Amino acid sequence: MTKIAFYGSSLLSAYWNGAATYYRGILRALAARGYDITFYEPDVHDRQKNRDIDPPDWARVVVYDGTVPALRAAAANASDADIVVKTSGVGFQDDLLLAEVMAAARPGALRIFWDVDAPATLAELHASPDHPLRAALPELDLVLTYGGGDPVIAAYRALGARDCVPVYNALDPDTHHPVPPEARLTCDMAFLGNRLPDRDARVAAWFFAPAAACPEARFVLGGSGWEGHPMPENVRALGHVPTRDHNALNASARMVLNIARDSMAETGFSPATRVFEAAGAGACIVTDAWEGVELFLKPGKEILVARDGQDVADLVRDTPPKDAARIGRRALMRVLREHTYTDRAELADELFRARLKAARAIA
């Protein structure tokens, strides 16, 4: 059985950790294909106090203290694995963790950097020629990303990566699926996203401004960090929404808004995890425009695309519940047919088998 040592932010908690559902979806699907997975996560940022799930039966989870000695001890365990993965945005001493994990990997092991925020990572690398990750790229076997398309692939190769392959976000239908609406979450439009510096302006333009323009409509805002932020009276802020409540939120809103962060919108080809989560619940999704959306869902039929906040306001006013429900059903059928983590794991499995064979031959 092929062993994977996976070093990420958190598998157990989605608190300030938007990549959690991506990790869960892809790793669970890989486990179903026979991989033996150990996930290493640091006890930082109160994530362990805000767990969304218990340790699953398809992966072993090792939680280590947010200290350098504990990091080094956890990294040393990479020597037992056939595939060693360090993700972006672990949240504690990322550069040191990368160095320690890759140094511990045994000869013939596949060494991977898995970037769950490629546009932001690339911006950081371009701004810092001496960045440790930039120096490490030529020594790694593979860079995987959860989006970005050709622009991200080309950028990573130009920085010295041997290869870069997107493994896109997707749907885990066992986790995200249609449920009955709940009165406490009923609204005309919902947006779920933590407050981040490169999201503020777009949320103001695509969510708060349309809410102000549609005072008769009800808007719901989920996510951490919005406490104290000024917002129209018809916006109800929920704070952190646990993963277990995502289906209810998506199913209770007439429309669900997706707002890309600045870097994602500029790079394109990076559908957020929440797009697939909402589609999996049968929600009518409204998204700000980004390049490549038509590769995942058909605009006007399976998803609605807004060029600006005025478009969002118009869609809130002009899309009746019956039409919204129809678009949501089409989105659900599309993602079940083409965009599940089972599909993504098949791609990753093929990559791993081919690259492991090559890495062992070199060793």
Rank of each mutant, 00 (worst) to 15 (best):
33 R>K: 13
187 C>E: 06
214 C>M: 12
46 D>M: 09
126 H>K: 09
336 L>D: 02
218 R>M: 03
295 L>F: 07
321 P>C: 11
7 Y>N: 08
226 W>R: 10
259 I>P: 10
168 Y>F: 03
247 N>T: 11
15 Y>M: 05
20 A>W: 03
331 A>Y: 02
234 N>Y: 04
326 R>P: 00
339 H>F: 02
175 T>E: 13
290 W>K: 12
261 R>G: 12
290 W>V: 06
344 R>C: 09
223 G>E: 06
176 H>L: 11
160 G>L: 01
133 L>D: 00
38 T>F: 15
7 Y>C: 09
327 I>N: 01
40 Y>R: 13
140 L>D: 06
139 E>R: 08
272 A>E: 07
264 M>V: 15
235 V>R: 07
56 P>K: 06
7 Y>R: 08
133 L>Q: 03
341 Y>K: 01
83 I>E: 05
55 P>S: 09
323 D>R: 01
63 V>C: 12
318 D>M: 12
289 A>L: 11
119 P>C: 07
185 L>R: 09
206 W>M: 11
323 D>N: 01
11 L>H: 12
276 F>M: 05
351 L>F: 01
322 K>H: 11
109 A>R: 04
317 R>A: 13
237 A>Y: 10
82 D>P: 02
222 G>C: 02
206 W>Y: 12
106 R>W: 12
82 D>M: 04
272 A>T: 10
102 M>Q: 06
84 V>W: 04
299 P>K: 02
245 D>G: 02
292 G>Y: 02
58 W>A: 02
165 V>D: 09
20 A>R: 07
345 A>M: 04
236 R>T: 15
145 T>E: 07
320 P>W: 03
282 G>M: 02
64 Y>V: 03
148 G>Q: 06
76 A>N: 11
182 E>P: 05
250 N>S: 07
317 R>E: 13
232 P>S: 07
49 K>Q: 15
36 D>K: 10
361 A>I: 11
202 R>N: 13
261 R>L: 13
356 L>W: 05
24 R>H: 09
154 A>C: 01
120 A>T: 10
234 N>E: 09
58 W>E: 00
49 K>S: 14
244 R>K: 14
252 S>Y: 08
292 G>S: 10
253 A>H: 11
46 D>P: 01
44 V>G: 01
231 M>D: 06
213 A>E: 00
6 F>V: 07
53 I>Q: 09
333 M>D: 15
260 A>D: 15
140 L>I: 10
209 A>Y: 00
90 V>L: 05
171 L>F: 06
101 V>K: 01
263 S>T: 14
246 H>E: 05
59 A>G: 06
228 G>P: 08
259 I>H: 06
174 D>W: 10
156 Y>V: 00
314 D>E: 10
